[in-house]
Write a protein that binds this DNA or RNA. Structure first.
Length: 493
RNA sequence: CGGGGUGUAGCGUAGCCCGGUAUCGCGCCACAUUUGGGAUGUGGAGGUCGUAGGUUCGAAUCCUGCCACCCCGACCA
């Protein structure tokens, strides 16, 4: 029962916003739509980055860095790309300020107008493909496998901490290949990397799928995605991987001399995940007591809290705590000793629960006497006495951390299974969407008109066409026209 | 950007209708007693009432502009 944290059942979005702030993850800044990611929140992001970066490198990618600014003319080179992003671009028009003549402060110097405006990147395809033109001449230069960790700006109307902010942090991979087949394989590979990261590290089950044509990335021929389900029954797109065809190669004239002696356009992909994953992580597992973090991404995996009256007791406990910490650290467990004497144990318990620390060890005089410690799990809120002599503490803690990781994953997976409903009629579609929410698995006739109509009527969108769906003859849940398989509908973030 | 709402100490609030210099709780500081689930007592500090104007002898209160945030739409990773 966290003090002051609203309950999920009463107001889910208020719960989310308060949790983000109370758990010290992020807060709104003085700049509209932009957040300050606080040290604790950033620590989690750093752990995500570290794992993803490792996975990217294992699949052959290297990091590079491209400019924050994109010349306006670049953006218009790929027609559907500019159409998709034009409405949300921040534009730099001047390069100098000067003192106002009336002494009221600084103003933009009208004489310092840029000849060509610069766009603050909403994504980097254009500036990167303009660079790739110079990097690629021959098939020997391919493939280009590059990733960038960066910030981007999209001028959104409504923002929410982590889920949608004007500026956000992300990674964007941009690759160029000699063949269509290879680029398609890359697109699929990176979607699978994201899915594996979500499932193994975030403990977040995701549906691997394909976007419909209307939901596709602006400038892509095909968009693969991972979709997750949040506790309020709404879907969240957690990552996308795009097959760009030759669209950007043609827009930026990136050609290569093939082995056969021809001159061909290269094939491209791009793929990204953002700080939005933080939102997914928070919403997927947390409860009314606060954050629940998967051990693999928790900045602190174990916190040790001393319980004492007298100085001598504290000293004895500290000695024991130091032994335990040394052993845990040797085993690669991150552990913090909360030896603040400014707060009582109960306060510390609540605080570390709020912040989602997976395991808590309490040591008091009673434990010293009995040779025990108390271990409490954040995910289940259960406690147990552990005898220090019976087995090595590091083995016990490591296996508990693994168990927590597995438990919260299967809990989320069960939730998603329960919240995925096969619907076969339009009435059923509407009532499930309104009363139960979650994913609706339904037949769709494959047309953009029907997709649009359903969105207008219900606010539900096609989240994806699952890659593992079975071929199944059926009729569209809305139009009654023939369908070859089910797609996933949901209301989404 | 359209509709609705809210801005008062670090946080949450009362006061606003009916104008007279701001209430309470949490938190903060000091001391004492406390410490196995958010301690208690005593004393204390902290406020340009979002912001800029206007009306008035006098504005948190009335009027206007602006800004920010929240909810609902449109947009979206």
């Amino acid at each position: 029962m966290s003090k002051g944290l609203p309950k999920r059942s009463e107001d889910y979005s208020l719960w989310y916003n308060e949790l983000v702030k109370k758990a010290d993850l992020a807060e709104n800044s003085a700049v509209r739509g932009c957040m300050v990611i606080k040290p604790y929140g950033y620590s989690i992001w750093e752990k995500m980055q570290a794992e993803l970066d490792r996975m990217f490198k294992e699949t052959g990618h290297l990091n590079a860095y491209f400019p924050l600014f994109i010349p306006k003319s670049f953006l218009s080179k790929e027609a559907s790309h500019v159409e998709g992003f034009a409405k949300e671009c921040a534009v730099v028009t001047h390069y100098r300020l000067k003192n106002a003549e009336d002494g009221s402060g600084v103003i933009v110097d009208p004489e310092a107008k840029l000849d060509e405006e610069l766009i603050v990147r909403p994504t980097s395809e254009t500036v990167i493909w303009s660079t790739y033109k110079n990097w690629v001449q021959s098939y020997r230069d391919l493939p280009l496998l590059v990733n960038q960790w960066a910030n981007v700006v999209r001028w959104e109307m409504r923002t929410r901490l982590f889920l949608r902010t004007t500026e956000f942090l992300w990674q964007e991979g941009h690759t160029a290949h000699a063949t269509k087949k290879e680029a398609e394989a890359e697109t699929l590979q990176m979607m699978n990397v994201y899915a594996q990261f979500a499932e193994d590290f975030m403990a977040l089950p995701v549906v691997r799928g394909r976007k419909t044509e209307t939901e596709r990335f602006a400038g892509a021929d095909d968009t693969l995605c991972i979709e997750a389900l949040m506790q309020d029954g709404k879907a969240l797109q957690a990552g996308t991987s795009h097959f760009l065809g030759q669209n950007f190669a043609k827009a930026f004239d990136v050609k290569f001399a093939s082995k056969e002696g021809g001159l061909e356009y290269v094939w491209g992909t791009s793929w990204g995940v953002s700080t939005r994953l933080m939102g997914a992580l928070i919403m997927a597992h947390s409860d009314d007591n606060g954050l629940v973090l998967p051990p693999k991404l928790a900045p602190i995996q174990v916190v040790i809290i001393p319980i004492y009256r007298k100085e001598e007791e504290f000293d004895a406990i500290t000695e024991k705590a130091n032994e335990i910490m040394a052993e845990l650290r040797k085993a690669g467990v991150s552990v913090k000793y909360d030896n603040r004497d400014t707060h009582k144990p109960g306060f510390k318990f609540a605080e570390h629960e709020l912040k989602g620390v997976p395991l808590r060890i309490a040591i008091g005089p009673r434990d010293l006497e009995n040779g025990t410690i108390e271990i409490a799990r954040r995910d289940t809120l259960t406690k147990e006495q552990f005898e220090l002599v019976s087995q090595p503490i590091s083995g016990k803690i490591s296996s508990m951390l693994e168990e927590i990781q597995a438990t919260i994953y299967s809990k989320a997976l069960n939730f998603r299974s329960e919240m995925t409903t096969e619907v076969n009629s339009w009435d059923e579609f509407k009532s499930v969407l309104e009363e139960k929410t979650g994913f609706l698995s339904a037949h769709w006739d494959g047309t953009a008109e029907t997709e649009e109509k359903i969105k207008d009527l219900t606010k539900a969108t096609i989240r994806c066409i699952p890659l593992d769906r079975k071929e199944e003859e059926g009729v569209c849940v809305y139009s009654g026209k023939p369908s070859k398989g089910r797609v996933l509908f949901a209301k989404a973030y």
